[in-house]
């Protein structure tokens, strides 16, 4: 010790042996500690993926290369060749949703149609839509029941409020993302680049509508249930460790179709369309009905409106 401290770094055979044994023991201990990594699925840890650019920085050629790579990966994992596209936002279109609470019966068909359409994980279960059961006469979400389980809906004296991403005009989730992995598209939809998200979950903390879902474990979708109609910024398969959420079914809506949750609704409570087209149903509802948004005091300006009406 004194030899060391006074600076004479002499190496004797004994200290050399001791050091060597110590180093070997230490290395063995470290190797044992990191041994779980042998089971690590390195499927999405390829160099190509690590070097992939941010969506907004990709050239058309980059994009085509990435899309082709994802098609191959999906084919390998699910044995289905997907129809993967990167649909651009339609000019002159801003999407909006209007939901008639007077009609909703709380059947949750929208929840399950969404899961199938958007390739959400079945185990662990990820759902973009949460249906709240509220006692009549209250809009206080704290009095809501999330896990109601009746044989028949609607239950008497209750009404139902489905909540999904509100695609806010002033989105707090986009503001907080440290790496710009989530942003607002020109058609008003908030999207996530699943290949850019670092999984810090700051956006989930910032969302006032509990819209964001995180892949805490590797998502699992049965091969036979995979929806092969895919879009880069919406329903392509995700991996563990990234955020996802409702995106108004961009793979459908940017191709002129309606969202899956709307198509499946048995009572016609859901309305979707282009806010900028005065003739669209959604624009008409906003003009003629008494609409409200959830948590107006959060001032996030949702594109998801609620109204009570037995007729429409």
């Amino acid at each position: 010790m004194s030899a060391q401290e006074s600076g004479r770094d002499g190496v004797t055979r004994r200290s050399f042996l001791r050091g060597g044994l110590g180093a070997a023991g230490g290395l063995a201990a470290v190797a044992a500690a990191v041994s779980p990594l042998r089971e690590l699925d390195t499927g999405d840890l390829t160099l190509e993926r690590l070097l992939q650019k941010h969506y907004k920085e990709m050239t058309p050629e980059d994009k085509e290369r990435v899309l082709e790579r994802i098609r191959n990966e999906v084919q390998q994992r699910f044995e289905v060749r997907p129809e993967l596209r990167d649909l651009p936002p339609l000019p002159g279109v801003e999407f909006a949703y209007a939901l008639n609470l007077g009609r909703c019966i709380g059947c949750r068909r929208c929840v399950h149609a969404c899961v199938r359409e958007n390739n959400q994980s079945r185990d662990p279960e990820i759902q973009y839509i949460r249906v709240l059961e509220l006692p009549r006469g209250s809009v206080d979400v704290e009095r809501s029941e999330h896990h109601y389980d009746h044989l028949r809906v609607p239950s008497p004296d209750h009404y139902y409020m489905p909540v999904q991403c509100h695609q806010c005009e002033n989105p707090p989730c986009v503001k907080v993302c440290p790496v710009e992995a989530t942003w607002k598209e020109p058609d008003g939809v908030i999207v996530i680049d699943y290949d850019w998200c670092i999984g810090c979950r700051y956006c989930a903390a910032a969302c006032p509508y509990f819209a964001r879902r995180f892949n805490y474990a590797e998502p699992s979708v049965p091969k036979e249930e995979l929806n092969p109609d895919m879009n880069y910024l919406s329903n392509r398969p995700r991996r563990k460790g990234v955020m996802e959420k409702c995106h108004f079914c961009l793979q459908r809506t940017r191709a002129g179709r309606m969202p899956a949750c709307l198509e499946v609704c048995p009572v016609g409570a859901r309305n979707f369309g282009n806010l900028l087209d005065p003739e669209s149903q959604v624009a008409q509802i906003l003009k003629t009905k008494q609409i409200f948004v959830l948590k107006q005091d959060a001032a996030t300006l949702p594109r998801f409106f609620y109204y009570f009406d037995q007729d429409m």
């Binding site: 941010h54 920085e57 710009e180 992995a181 850019w196 892949n215 990234v242």
Partner: peptide, 16 residues
């Protein structure tokens, strides 16, 4: 705490 620590370099490439 990161879900994807392998991507932490993104912070230098697209720093918000």
């Amino acid at each position: 705490d990161l879900g994807r620590p392998d991507r932490f370099l993104h912070i230098f490439m697209r720093f918000n």
